[in-house]
Design a protein around this nucleic acid. Sequence first.
RNA 1: GCCGAUGUAGCUCAGCUGGUAGAGCAAUGCUUUCGUAAAGCAUAGGUCGCGGGUUCGAGUCCCACCAUCGGCUCCA
Length: 655
Amino acid sequence: MPRITLPDGKVLEFPQAVTGKQVAETIGPGLAKKAIGVKLDGTEIRDLARPIDRDCTIKIITAKDDDPDALYLLRHSAAHVLAEAVCAVFPGTQLAYGPPVDDGFFYDLKTPRPVTEGDFATIEAKMQEIVGQNRPFTRCELSAADGLARTANDKYKNDNAQRALAKGDDKLSFYVSGEPGRDWEDLCAGPHVPSTGWLKASKVMSVAGAYWHGDQTSDQLTRIYGTCFADEKGLKQHLHRLEEAKRRNHRKLGKEMSLFHIEEDNPGQVFWHPNGWSIYVTLMEYMRQKQRKYGYVEVHTPSVMARSLWERSGHWEKYRENMFTTESEKRDFAIKPMNCPGHLLIFKQGLKSYRDLPLRIAEFGSCCRNEASGALHGIMRVRGFVQDDGHILCTDEQVGQEVATFCRMLTEVYADFGFGIDRITVKLATRPAQRIGDDATWDHTEKTLGDAVTAAGLKFVVSPGEGAFYGPKLEFTLVDAIGRGWQCGTIQLDPNLPGKDRFDATYVAEDGSRKNCVMLHRATLGSLERFLGILIEHFEGKFPLWLAPEQVRVIPISDAQLPFAKGVQQRLVDAGMRATIDEQPNSLGAKVRDARLARVNYFAVVGQKEVDEGAVALQNQAGDKLGTLAVDAFVARMLEEVAQKRLPAAMTTGA
RNA sequence: GCCGAUGUAGCUCAGCUGGUAGAGCAAUGCUUUCGUAAAGCAUAGGUCGCGGGUUCGAGUCCCACCAUCGGCUCCA
């Protein structure tokens, strides 16, 4: 007698177990036609055809692009269609694993020959054929023994089956795309849409390598990525977003705007050009001011440090393959990959009192990490970079307060770049399996971090087991203008490095005893290189005035206005603006075009009329004509916009 | 590091089954001094990622390497 509660609170009672389909039909035939699955008690998504035999709340899932549950069902099902198509195109293919992911799904398989992009059309054609046949997804449940027998000759599926059983399942389910015994089938927990006909808006996206279980020493598999939406419109929008991302690509814009380059002979190291360096320095100076306001002292520590120091910090043992090492007079050295040891060494100079704590040490630390060649990615992932790094040395009792204050500073900083609270997500990474310290300490520190985030007005999600071995951490992710997430800020608690066995950073407590500090590693922007890459893509190269490399370009209409125009430019430069002048003997149209393409924020056109009036005719990058302004008013307006760090209207968010 | 793809002028790209490397933009020179997204003409510019090999002959075919891109892995 299941009692089923609908989203509006209405309760339906049935004399015996019913399927989701039947529930939907009871509510209305229109809904039943559109339904692709159900969600029970807000957690369990089920096939429409599976019986519901308990009291529960229900949500009928219909095929909609804005419902994550619907996309989950569609994509999980589309993965099966893809896999079937690949098996048909490449006989002998072995299936491994095919889950839905953000933006789509993938299927890992072992194919008899490498799959290339050239094969996509063939695979897609086969997929459309399967979709066109509108075959039902049929669930078959088998006992553990029968299920294992059915996968006996299939290395990966058998492994999956055993894992499922080890997790506590007592049955194994298979899904047949059509009629059992005749059509293609796959070991799968489900759930799926009713039939393949729902999967019209599917597309094969890319192919990549992947390892079985993500283990480098295990089998190399082929991973085919695809996506699926409820309808063509959703798919089209998705493809449009990808195009948009391509248009904003920081490598493309970096070249176009001459911000930086990377030499082919020197992978992972950035050569900053004048325009890029201008933004970089502005960023750095901005953070310097902000940190000063929040009580940090700035230091600078050596780039190359002796092996003995890296041994003491533990890096030589644990982080060796990521460090660039060198040698001098038979002694080993390493280029620093992190700044923490240097900061501890500064802390240890002289005797510290509890009155000196918390000590907040900041450094724009230039670090090198020997990243795997395949991991490099424009300026987002490089081997040489600068962090807005900082370490707070404090007592256990001060941790909560320090984390809360850091969260406040971070939200303030992010807001200045247009990332309001609605564009920040926070993750609390908790104790991993391999760790030091007792559970009571972990309980306490995890709670302290969580409370501090809440106190700053932010929400967080817990990421179990993702913490460092020595302590929990918070990770702050920005959501950019086209909805992509970028993890930037972080703060993590570390009692290990300042502890007795490492650097033994102590202070004299109120009672005269020596105690060890704890340390908070923290960064707001993270790597400046990466953060700037994010900003380039977020703003599409159209930076807010305070960050822009070329803020104003003065454009004289003809040489006759050159002296006046130069005077205007000089006024701007004297006022601290980054202003240039276009002296080319081109038509005005050409000069305006150049300025807009160069993404100059404002251009001040000076013709004879403006010279006579002591004014400029102003236009912005977007092409809005802003009228004629007296030079004084113009300069004041620019300075005000810089001072306010005003963002383009489209880039401001709530909160 | 692993899997797949890519690499031709400063940039964006064309170059078929092997036969002396091409366009647009940019650059340079001259002319034009122009009222809000492209003035005209001319000139110059390439060891086809690098190294081998096959061939009478290689941008094109083969092998190895490097870099980049999409992923994987890594991110004490």
